[in-house]
Design a protein around this nucleic acid. Structure first.
Lengths: 197, 197
DNA sequence: CACTTATGTGGATCAGTGATCCGAATCAAG
DNA sequence: CTTGATTCGGATCACTGATCCACATAAGTG
């Protein structure tokens, strides 16, 4: 790779980072190119699609989250590990407004540049969930896919200006649904047992 | 209102209905105008913005949902009433793919054409929730805004092709979090009590 | 250092979007 | 039937992502 090309690539990545944190992932690619002092065509040569650019930009964050999941697997409490990791995941998405929709689309589109990162992230969450389930700390009728969907939904709430103030509270509510009670025998039914204390 | 104008308006609404159910709320306004046999400028005169068009198109659905909430208020079980209404709300959004994002934006934007409908809907849900809380069937640390956020999040999951197959299951999980247990004393803390059976 | 070649660049351009303007067509009242 | 106001829709604008190709430039060679 030529030296000037590498330099342009780096400029593009930093410009994309600041532009996205300011305006969200839907920011105009022309804006990013302009910030980097580069033509639009150059941006599109280095990153043929918006997803490719995001993949290069977010890959380290993805890796950090999966690494964190690995560390938490040796934490003392399976329950705390799961909840803490969930919180980290949701909190991370607030840095990149709008990234949730792209992740949701990428997780099932094997052609997407973000696909691999999303699958890895889901697997990391699934391991933490399985550990909590084995310890009886999480309901047993959900799996990694459900967990990923819950993370995405909570992250999406944080993306919406109208819901963002309540996002933390809603997180607690949903987390309490994932944790503890119920979920062993009547999982097939789907409907939880009626409350009769 | 002139007769031909009214006719065009009706054609536009039916065309918008079919176009949106086929392609989602992001469908091109030109497509809708073309289906209605009308110019784009005509569509934009009758409905100056996409939200205005959606408001006219969805208002009856909104009214149906709020009316249903009113009926359910006299149902025998506050718990069943709440869950049934939640299910109806989430199910309704599947007809109009992508409408959730617009509702989320409209609920806090008083200028939006959809604002009034969303506020009314939220109030209807809040009444059902309050009734369930009074009966001890729903946790007491959530309010109508939280409920609206949960509905929106679940509806958004149904909108995403990758999550749609799990949307029903996730609904049950979230519904079980809203219902029954906890929520009276420790609401201030946010964090649910650790599971220690 | 000079030259050649392969590589990278970016302005011009295309199809698509929502929005706006204004001359022309159409309806309804007298 | 005439008149006048209302409505219509093609042309147009600014913006998006994407593509093309003449041009500039860096890297390698003698």
């Amino acid at each position: 790779m030529r030296a000037d090309a590498r330099e342009n690539r780096d400029h593009l990545l930093t410009a994309a980072g600041t532009a996205i944190t300011e305006q969200g992932v839907d920011v105009s690619l022309r804006d990013i190119a302009r910030r980097a002092g580069v033509g639009l065509a150059t941006l599109l040569r280095h990153f043929p699609t918006r997803e490719a650019l995001l993949d290069a930009l977010l890959r380290t964050s993805f890796d950090d989250l999966t690494a964190k999941a690995g560390e938490l697997e040796t934490s003392n409490s399976p329950e705390d590990a799961l909840v803490s990791w969930l919180r980290d995941c949701v909190a991370w998405t607030t840095e990149y407004r709008g990234v949730t929709v792209l992740m949701a689309a990428a997780i099932e589109d094997a052609e997407s540049a973000l696909h691999a990162s999303c699958v890895t992230l889901r697997a990391a969450g699934a391991r933490l969930l399985a550990r909590a389930q084995a310890a009886g700390a999480a309901r047993s009728d959900i799996d990694g896919t459900d967990l990923f969907a819950l993370i995405a939904a909570l992250a999406w709430l944080g993306d919406q200006p109208s819901f963002a103030p309540r996002a933390d509270h809603v997180f607690e509510v949903v987390a309490s649904a994932v944790l503890t009670r119920a979920g062993s025998g009547d999982a097939e039914q789907g409907t939880p047992p009626p409350s009769a204390p």
